[in-house]
Design a protein around this nucleic acid. Structure first.
Length: 730
DNA sequence: TCTATGGTGATTTTT
DNA sequence: TCACCATAGA
């Protein structure tokens, strides 16, 4: 193997700490990897080292990530480094690997071979229906909240039977939880948290199976460890043994998902839970300029609960960090756009640029200005392909063709497009299914046999069921793409959406066509998918675990818009962090509790460390939020950055001599704007006791210190403190 | 079954 | 403000 001879060279290309991590003897390892410190590199090299130097067989390695993207990247880089495919190694996401375990042992996991995975949207629909069935008022018991409760319990490893209700609320939640568990079991449906819980139970209830994997997985590696939740931690414990080693890589300073159940404690207690553990810190940053690194360090140092780590770089000092104080969000957007134009005029790409914000709603104004300036952009984290309504409809048909007991799919498609099975008949079917303790499909069959429905519903239902049965029959031996095309035609879905001539309808048809393309491209590559009974079932598994992100054109040159959360793991030469305002960032929902505030600060650290060359922080003095004009102070995070790293910019607005850059937004956005706390507006005519008549050009500040700039007819322009100047409207 | 209207509430999101 | 929802009415 040529890889053997390459290894020394590759090792040399690492820094001391990285090399220490990669070449450590077999042991438990905690790698604290700062932003941009090359953690994926270390993970990948460690795997190569294990195989080539420490005699570990790929078969004995388990590598876990959070996202499919990260898993794919890791797999590709290992294979590239090693020089060949490594099918024996398990690389995947927590959910993907849990699924694989379950497929491998369906019987022991008490699942049928054809079990399918549902996403959170399906889960919510099931719960809504269930609650209606239980006669629970949807206002008093919002299904969203129930969903949250159930997932929370599962993530703590708790089944309905494990919980003793302490009040009426929990009692009710448990009733639903029980009904939900029963329904999923009956329909062979598994939700995301169930994948983990069920596979954990598989291991804890079957000592021999656990022993098999304990013995097999000698080396377990985990990426983004700071994001693991309780059940994922337990899951890792269950797969490891005293004879195996865990290498976890993470950064407590980048833990931004506690609200999703991630436990920082996992990384903080790792040393204690896993004996004989060595900790290595990767602190050299290869991404950003020194100024950016210093600024990020300064901000994060305000957090109290840290494992302690300080990034450094041997790179250039770089530019100062520019702080732009805008009057309004339009002004902020305009400034951002103009700086992007400057960047591109210097010969750089749009694709180098990221605009980050705390909440999705902030993207709108930015989009308007980008559109206006003809700058191509892309928003990350919109709706995922396989989550679109029309795609889910199509998948609903495919699912029920694959498994008639799938109640979620039945509900979705029985009357889509409408074929005369209304709410009344559906309720009867649901009722019947409930009393018979069976699926909607079986209940329908029974009702047809016993003629329990009105004629119209009877016939419609019969047609629907025949449609599904026939489709299934007729397409048994067809390739997936043809099967899908037949289904779209026979179900009338295509025609249903073709009738919609709007922009929206056209897009939906395009998406359905895209679905056919997806079926054409789908190959049975992953072993767990091979373990399903049919190619169709395999495809359904694939789409359930793979939401269809990131198929962006490889060399498309777009400005990237995304939330700070979505930016984690990415890097861009030029980064704008917008909306640096108190109550927006840190967000007011988080800033009351110290833990919340610390997480916001970590988010700021994450956002800042995305920037490689140049970082802009922008904020607006006033911003319309939920319909009202709000005034926010600049974010405290700006003040946490040492002054000497910052360069402040503020639009100058002088009506006589408008400065080129701010001409347009200034005149447009300032006019009519209220100078806070003064009762005065920009553009308003006023009279001063000494200076006489004038017009207000600008203002500054938001409290008792607010100053206004007035152009007097006979005395030129002056800045006056509004509270003292006694300006009268004229 | 489709459309219009009003009430409501409004971080962050992967699988 | 705006988008999403549920409900009512044609």
């Amino acid at each position: 193997m040529h890889a053997m001879s390459e290894t020394p060279f590759l090792i040399q290309s690492l820094n001391d700490r990285q090399r220490e991590a990669v070449s450590a003897p077999k042991s438990n390892l905690l790698i604290l990897a700062g932003a941009g410190s090359g953690k994926t590199r270390v993970l990948v090299h460690r795997i190569a080292w294990l195989i080539e130097k420490l005699g570990v067989h790929p078969h004995q390695i388990l590598a876990v990530t959070f996202t499919n993207k990260a898993a794919r990247e890791m797999q590709a880089r290992i294979e590239e480094l090693h020089g060949s495919k490594m099918p024996a190694m398990w690389v995947g996401t927590f959910h993907g690997l849990a699924h694989r375990l379950l497929r491998q042992h369906t019987a022991e996991a008490n699942l049928s071979d054809g079990f399918q995975i549902i996403d959170s949207d399906d889960q919510l629909r099931i719960l809504k229906r269930l609650q209606k069935n239980l006669d629970l008022d949807e206002h008093r018991w919002p299904a969203k909240q129930t969903q949250w409760f159930i997932n929370k319990q599962k993530e703590e490893g708790k089944r309905a039977k494990d919980i003793t209700p302490s009040d009426y609320y929990e009692e009710t939640m448990l009733r639903i939880y029980n009904a939900y568990e029963a329904l999923c079991q009956r329909s062979s449906l598994v939700d995301f948290s169930e994948l983990l819980l069920r596979s954990l139970e598989l291991l804890t209830h079957n000592k021999d199976i656990a022993a098999h994997y304990n013995n097999r997985f000698q080396q377990i590696l985990v990426d983004e460890f700071q994001d693991t939740n309780s059940i994922q931690y337990e899951w890792l414990k269950a797969l490891s043994s005293p004879d195996s080693n865990l290498m976890v890589v993470g950064d407590d300073d980048q833990s931004i998902y506690s609200w999703r159940g991630a436990k920082i404690k996992n990384i903080q207690n790792f040393n204690r839970d896993f004996s004989d553990c060595k900790t290595i810190k990767l602190e050299q940053n290869y991404r950003s300029t020194e100024n950016i690194v210093s600024a990020a360090n300064a901000v994060i140092s305000f957090n109290k609960k840290r494992l302690g780590k300080k990034l450094w770089t041997s790179g250039d000092q770089g530019d100062m960090i520019t702080v732009y104080c805008a009057f309004r969000e339009q002004d902020e957007a305009h400034y951002t756009v103009s700086k992007i134009q400057d960047w591109v005029e210097k010969g750089h790409r749009y694709g180098d640029v990221a605009i980050l914000y705390r909440s999705n709603a902030q993207s709108r104004v930015l989009e308007e200005y980008l559109l206006d300036a003809n700058i191509p952009y892309r928003i990350y984290g919109g709706q995922k392909f396989f989550e679109r309504a029309e795609i889910k409809d199509a998948l609903g048909y495919l699912r029920i063709m694959s498994n008639r007991q799938d109640d979620a799919a039945f509900e979705r498609v029985v009357n889509t497009p409408s074929r005369g099975i209304g709410e009344t008949s559906l309720n009867k079917i649901r009722e019947h299914a409930k009393t018979m303790q069976t699926s909607l499909w079986n209940a329908s069959l029974d009702m047809i046999n016993k003629s329990l429905l009105t004629n119209r519903a009877h016939n419609s239902l019969k047609t629907f069921m025949a449609l599904v049965d026939d489709l299934d029959q007729d397409t048994q031996n067809l390739p997936l793409a043809e099967l899908t095309e037949q289904m779209l035609a026979a179900s009338d879905l295509i025609h249903f959406y073709q009738r919609d001539k709007s922009q929206n309808g056209i897009a939906r048809i395009e998406n359905l066509e895209e679905l056919i393309t997806a079926t054409k491209q789908f190959k049975l590559e992953d072993p767990p998918e091979q373990m399903t009974s049919t190619p169709l079932a395999a495809f359904l598994v694939h789409v359930a675990l793979e939401t269809g992100e990131g198929q962006a054109e490889a060399y498309a040159d777009y400005v990237n818009l995304m939330t700070m959360h979505a930016a984690k793991g990415l890097e861009f030469p030029l980064v704008f962090i917008t909306g640096m305002e108190e109550d927006l960032f840190p967000h007011k929902m988080s800033s009351n509790k110290p833990e919340g505030l610390e997480e916001e600060r970590r988010l700021c650290y994450v956002a800042m460390t995305r920037a490689m060359k140049k970082l802009y922080l922008t904020y607006a003095e006033s911003r319309s939020l939920h319909g009202t004009e709000e005034f926010h102070r600049p974010s405290r995070f700006i003040q946490e950055i040492p002054k000497e790293l910052l360069e402040h910019v503020r639009p100058k607005t002088n009506v006589n001599q408008p400065s080129e850059a701010y001409h347009r937004p200034a005149s447009q956005t300032l006019r009519g704007q209220k100078a806070a706390g003064t009762g005065l507006r920009v553009g308003q005519r006023v009279k001063h006791a000494k200076f006489g008549a004038g017009i207000i050009l600008n203002y500054e500040g938001t409290d008792a210190q607010t100053r206004v700039e007035v152009q007097f007819e006979n005395y030129g322009t002056k800045w006056l403190v509004a509270n003292y100047a006694k300006l009268e409207p004229a």
